[in-house]
Design a protein around this nucleic acid. Structure first.
Lengths: 198, 198
DNA sequence: GTCAATAAATGGATTGCGTCTAAGAATACT
DNA sequence: AGTATTCTTAGACGCAATCCATTTATTGAC
């Protein structure tokens, strides 16, 4: 089952091929000016096939992080209600460990060239929200009042996405996302929440 | 300029009329199953006119908060770089002061009946992100490093949206959004950021 | 009253995403 | 050869959102 595809028609393309074609076009024409049909045309498959590989156009950029968030959400849902925060930090660390998605990094560093600034902001917000929802859920299960749970969840989910942003903006070369997240965790502990903070 | 409409064809509808029609339909059939054409038909105007009143379908529910966020974003952009956090808290307090949007509250309390759960989560995330971007910008202008600025911004923006959620979920009857936000601010100061927090 | 100027409504066309379905093509197993 | 399996593909669809040209309703000036 491992190597040989067992039966059926072989795939005519791959996520990688499509993502590559998409990124090229995003750089050439910009995100909005690139249609799904454009992408599949360059990749040499039909438009219909696109949605066999990605669930949406923006998914091309975010599927890597989405998968990781999905497992993190599952893991968070499985945490017993009586655990301490170390487990949560561990799950979030696993989420960012060895994270290096070519397409997202490329898009983030070239967001202005791709005309992607708003798009990326919004897409990032959706991912942050999905993670925050799982975190808030866990916090509530652990007895934290709803309002406080939402706020703490917003902070931690914000830290994850901030780490990704910081990593991408620094050229994605120096330092891993995990490093950035560790930095973020330290920053949270040091946050001056009294007036001078923000 | 105040009362008499100065010239031109009089409006055939209003935001209120359209919002009312929309909410009725959302309750009857659900959000996804309600098209813009359905809304305008019930309101007695053409589909084209809808976009003279709202910029999108979801805007029906969020325009109230959007306007407030817009002024808050403008105010935040105008804050000199050398001010303390009190000014920020003031702007955010103004954002939620006397906030009581009928349609959003209705939608949030009946989100499951309207089949709106996911939709509202996502829409809320976009608003939170818009506010967070302005807050992070200000923090960066004030010399806070980017990563920390993002995290702090996520917390405060999260607090605003959490206040709105808490207010809506409590029936929108007891206590104002402003009260909830004040509660949120106190919660932030009390947040146990070491492990046991979340 | 007539006439411009103005503001809004309207119909219709267009684009693009995302969904769905039925039909076809390529592969492995027997 | 035949069958089950897996994927591709064409095509149609519904809907949101944009755009434009046209029409309708009002105000105010002459």
């Amino acid at each position: 089952m491992s190597s040989a595809s067992r039966a059926g028609r072989p795939k005519a393309s791959s996520r990688e091929t499509l993502a590559e074609a998409a990124c090229e076009l995003f750089l050439e024409r910009g995100y909005d000016a690139t249609s799904v049909a454009d992408i599949t045309q360059r990749a040499g498959v039909s438009r219909s096939s696109f949605f066999n590989y990605f669930s949406s156009k923006s998914d091309v950029l975010w599927s890597g992080l989405d998968e990781r968030i999905t497992t993190a959400v599952d893991d968070l849902a499985a945490v017993p209600h009586d655990r301490d925060g170390a487990e949560v930090r561990h799950i979030l660390s696993a989420l960012v460990a060895d994270f290096a998605p070519d397409s997202l990094a490329l898009a983030m560093t070239n967001s202005s060239a791709m005309g992607l600034d708003d798009e990326l902001e919004q897409d990032a917000a959706l991912r942050q929200a999905r993670l925050a929802a799982a975190l808030a859920d866990l916090a509530r299960r652990s007895g934290v009042v709803s309002l406080t749970a939402d706020i703490a969840a917003a902070t931690w989910a914000g830290a994850v996405l901030a780490a990704v942003r910081a990593w991408a903006e620094s050229g994605a070369g120096r330092g891993s996302v995990a490093d950035r997240f560790a930095e973020a965790v330290r920053a949270i502990a040091r946050l001056p929440w009294s007036p001078p903070a923000i």
